[in-house]
């Protein structure tokens, strides 16, 4: 088992006005493993993710990726760092002015300066990896169903062969079967290829399938963290309430 720490977060804080959203987060992810952060809506999951991928600047703390603190990096170096990441957004965030294959190939054309036909070839390969045929490649993204959009978005996030993929609630808004398909695809794209994964969700079935470790975020703090098979015996009331989906206290 590899013990190289891919992502290290120490004492990360972020507040909007007087509202403290992240109040001292500490997390580690080992290389090739997947960490799933669970938490109720509004607990700060999305803010945490956006801090890590550099869309929001945290107030204080350390985010180290491959041993390098990325918070203090200047903008252009930070942009270069993005090459190593793939990000799957909650709503897919596909560019609706472009066709399916152009979406998948977007990062390739933007960063590697390869020509369009080569990029198209790679895009088709990635689409096949997520179970989409060549027929959809020329469609407009607006014509796709929700599940298909998620798959295209997944294909786009793995197009650059990243070493680290972030997932923002990948199964939200999908039916249970499609959610399971997406979960399996995520496992295929991360664990099976030895890629590090960071996923935020409130869908427990998704968390159990994908995670090596699970952390629970509550009121801006990590209140429990452990291996996925320990979560049913966490001994933590909040975690128990969340995984069993009960409306009663304490949350």
């Amino acid at each position: 088992m590899s013990k190289i720490i891919k992502l290290r977060i120490r004492n990360l804080k972020k507040s909007f006005g007087s509202k403290m959203v992240l109040n001292g987060i500490n997390l580690d992810i080992c290389e090739g493993k997947s960490l799933v952060v669970i938490g109720a809506s509004g607990s700060g999951k999305s803010v945490l993710l956006k801090c890590i991928i550099g869309l929001i600047r945290p107030d204080s703390g350390v985010i180290e990726i491959d041993g390098k603190n990325v918070i203090s990096l200047p903008r252009y170096e930070r942009e270069a760092y993005m090459h190593k990441f793939g990000v799957l957004f909650q709503g897919g965030a596909l560019f609706d002015s472009l066709s399916v294959w152009e979406n998948v190939a977007f990062g390739l054309i933007a960063t590697r300066n390869i020509n369009r036909s080569t990029a198209r070839g790679i895009a088709l390969k990635k689409l096949a990896q997520v179970g989409l045929s060549e027929d959809v490649a020329n469609l407009s993204t607006a014509d796709l169903s929700g599940g298909m959009q998620k798959r295209v978005s997944l294909a786009r996030s793995i197009a650059n062969d990243p070493k680290f993929i972030f997932f923002d609630e990948p199964t939200t808004g999908l039916d249970p079967i499609m959610a399971d398909i997406i979960n399996k695809l995520i496992v295929k794209c991360t664990r099976d290829l030895g890629i590090t994964g960071f996923l935020i969700t409130h869908d427990m079935s998704s968390a159990r399938k994908i995670a090596d470790r699970i952390a629970m975020l509550y009121h801006g703090k990590i209140i429990w963290e452990g291996a996925v098979n320990k979560i049913d015996n966490s001994g933590n009331n909040y975690v128990n309430q969340f995984i069993n989906g009960k409306a009663e206290l304490p949350i």
Partner: peptide, 17 residues
């Protein structure tokens, strides 16, 4: 609309300013 649907965030993550 691009801002609301996170397409602008997606641009940034795809190394495009």
């Amino acid at each position: 609309a691009m801002q609301v649907t996170e397409q602008i965030d997606a641009l940034t993550t795809l190394s495009t300013n």
